[in-house]
């Protein structure tokens, strides 16, 4: 019972963090067709900016300022980098972001040092919210939950209820038509890229202090974000949301299962002492998202909720 409760709680919270990280990428990917390899780097920038700002003022100011700064950096990258590369096709765009991720990491090392920085949870939230089965549940995680839900609602309102959102949605699928209607499509692209990066930055602000803020944090988060976007499906924020929760829950439930292959497939004659048989489900947990990615692409290439195939 307690395993299930823990897995649910952690799975939902981890899934929501993943969603914050990947919602921006879904927007960017669906509109521009670019798989932004540097997306996790913007997540890292968010954490570092928040570290600097909260050092000189407070965490609450950083919570608002840092994502805006990251968004501005993203907009500059789109305007002076990506737009120029756009003419050379998608592979060039993708490789540009690939190189950018390298550059951001090295520059962060020079500016902030090569080791992790001491980015802490604000004192106001540094207490256990409640205790179940002997383990206390930090209040900060509840706070994460609210930020993520707030962001989800905000994004939904922006896209579905405002005029700007309608234009963005139209530009996602029919950029040329939107252009013919007199809208400035490059500006829309730049805005969306900026917003996407700002969302990643926000994830960095609230994720950086619960995990570790160091120059390797982008590399560690990088591939899993793609999994969410692809599994969720192109152009579908709902899909990304479902995929994030699915992956969060999948990983957390798998950790709770200590059974090994040998025990499960024992009826096939697999021994628990053999190399294959001794592998436990819980040790495979972090690999499950990639397995899901491969299977999804093979059997359902448009993802959970995608409108078109990749």
């Amino acid at each position: 019972m307690e395993t299930i409760v823990f897995a649910l709680l952690n799975g939902v919270i981890y899934g929501l963090l993943l969603f914050m990280l990947s919602s921006g990428l879904t927007l960017i990917f669906s509109m521009m067709g670019v798989l932004n390899f540097a997306h996790a780097s913007f997540y890292m920038l968010g954490a570092y900016f928040a570290f600097t700002i909260s050092g000189s003022s407070s965490f609450w100011i950083a919570l608002f300022i840092a994502p805006v700064l990251v968004g501005l950096v993203g907009a500059v990258v789109e305007r002076y980098g990506l737009r120029k590369v756009h003419a050379n096709g998608h592979v060039a765009e993708l490789l540009f972001t690939f190189g950018l991720a390298y550059l951001i990491e090295e520059v962060v090392k020079i500016v902030y040092g090569k080791t992790s920085v001491d980015y802490r949870i604000p004192d106001l939230l540094d207490f256990p919210a409640f205790t179940i089965y002997g383990a206390s549940f930090p209040a900060y995680r509840i706070f994460m939950l609210f930020v993520a839900i707030g962001m989800l609602v905000g994004l939904w309102v922006l896209l579905k209820k405002t005029r700007a959102g309608l234009i963005i949605q139209a530009a996602l699928t029919h950029p040329h038509m939107v252009g013919h209607l007199g809208h400035n499509v490059p500006l829309i692209f730049m805005t969306v890229f900026g917003i996407g990066c700002a969302l990643a930055g926000l994830a960095g602000v609230i994720g950086g202090n619960i995990f570790v803020t160091d120059p390797a944090m982008a590399v560690q988060m990088g591939p899993i974000v793609f999994v969410v976007v692809v599994v969720g499906g192109i152009g579908s924020l709902e899909g990304a949301f479902l995929a994030s929760l699915l992956i969060g829950l999948l990983q957390n439930f798998a950790v709770g299962i200590s059974a090994s292959f040998g025990e499960i497939f024992g009826f096939l004659g697999l021994s628990t002492t053999s190399e294959l048989g001794s592998i436990t489900i819980s040790s495979l947990a972090p690999m499950l998202p990639f397995l899901l990615l491969v299977l999804m692409l093979i059997f359902r290439p448009r993802g959970l909720m995608g409108e078109q195939e990749l």
Partner: peptide, 15 residues
């Protein structure tokens, strides 16, 4: 657990 792949150790800690 797999080498360098786990981001959130909370479920392990709760175990």
């Amino acid at each position: 657990h797999p080498l360098g792949k786990v981001k959130d150790f909370t479920p392990y800690i709760q175990k």
